[in-house]
Design a protein around this nucleic acid. Structure first.
Lengths: 193, 193
DNA sequence: TTTTTTGTTGATTGACGAGTCAATAAACTT
DNA sequence: AAGTTTATTGACTCGTCAATCAACAAAAAA
């Protein structure tokens, strides 16, 4: 029963289902059929819209990165001054949308995918660069020449906290994650002014 | 042509080949046949000694974690005093044996495996706890009540630096990795004494 | 109303890969 | 010498899964 204009809805449903399925399975070794079933359609339809499993994964990854970017931008919107903006970037990185079990787990898996998949790698690089550039920009007036190193450290720490959250049992603790990264930031800023 | 006492040699060869294969492929989706070929034997023999692919992976993971532990202990052997010991732990974490392309990549993949595989998870937990406990122990006299938080931060940062190295192209830069983590440590220690 | 476009799926294909097995052979035991 | 244990592999089984296809249905266009 074709309701026209199904394509965008189907695609979105598949992307959502992919993140959930990969997140729950904790692995990319999920079948297109599993994803499709969760999204309420046949695997044939999933192939019809995305062409291949690879493309489904890439779409899911884009979705995660877009969500992440949106949360950072959202947090940044109301922040003025370098320190506030740095805090906003960090807070945005642990936003309620991104810092969720399945999303974290899916993110980790897509991270691994980036080792093999050129396009996945590209996507990840774009976001890493953007984050580092944002951090560096706000850090410059506060820590001068150390900006680059601190930006890299913060980036790595954020990744590290994510990866650990992926392995921890129970719901990931946003507050605690935030605290760790924020304290790092504060230590680095201490000798400022 | 059975040379007796082949078992330990074969097992070691398979473990080594597994790390190399997984590291190069950047994925756990490698076949037992690939691993076995690289180790110079048939896939049947690999199954004969390990029983299953899963067991092969676990053996490889144990090997990585054992190597890591050995490097940390090695660095610790000559260090006296909390600060020197902390530096040793960090340095050991980026030892020449562990902080190598294939090993890092394999490590990342086994990390992901830990989301699914109970035994892999257990192994990782053991090592994470040991690291944190070591760090905490040396941190206590230096930062007091902050020891726990700093230990967690350091652990996460080390993981984060590893994970980023997995994605970076070219040979991983030990010196730079070490610098980032060491500086974090120094900042935390600054207000000491 | 015929035709085209869009949506949808069950069934099938084709490849691949983990794990098993039977067979072969060299060494070691009795 | 006969029997047992250890080493080793080619061939095979069996399941799984990505991807394709033929076919059907409803809406839109002609």
């Amino acid at each position: 029963m074709p309701k026209l204009g199904a394509e965008p809805i189907r695609r979105a449903a598949l992307v959502k289902a992919t993140i959930e399925t990969v997140g729950e399975a904790g692995s990319l070794e999920v079948t297109v059929a599993q994803i499709a079933r969760r999204a309420g359609m046949s695997s044939a339809l999933a192939h019809h819209y995305f062409g291949s499993k690879e493309q489904i994964f890439l779409a899911a990854m884009r979705s995660i990165l877009t969500l992440y970017g949106a949360e950072v931008r959202g947090a940044l919107a109301t922040a003025t001054g370098p320190e506030a903006r740095l805090r906003a970037i960090v807070a945005g990185s642990f936003g309620v949308g991104s810092f969720r079990r399945e999303v974290i787990s899916a993110w980790l898996n897509f991270y691994v995918l980036s080792q093999t998949q050129p396009e996945a790698r590209r996507l990840l690089h774009v976001y890493q660069r953007r984050l580092r550039s944002n951090l560096r920009h706000e850090l410059r007036p506060l820590v001068g020449s150390r900006a680059e190193a601190v930006a890299r450290g913060l980036g790595a720490l954020i990744d590290g906290v994510y990866i650990r959250a992926a392995l921890a049992e129970g719901a990931p603790d946003r507050r605690y994650a935030l605290k760790i990264v924020t304290e790092y930031l504060e230590r680095e800023l201490e000798g400022k002014a």
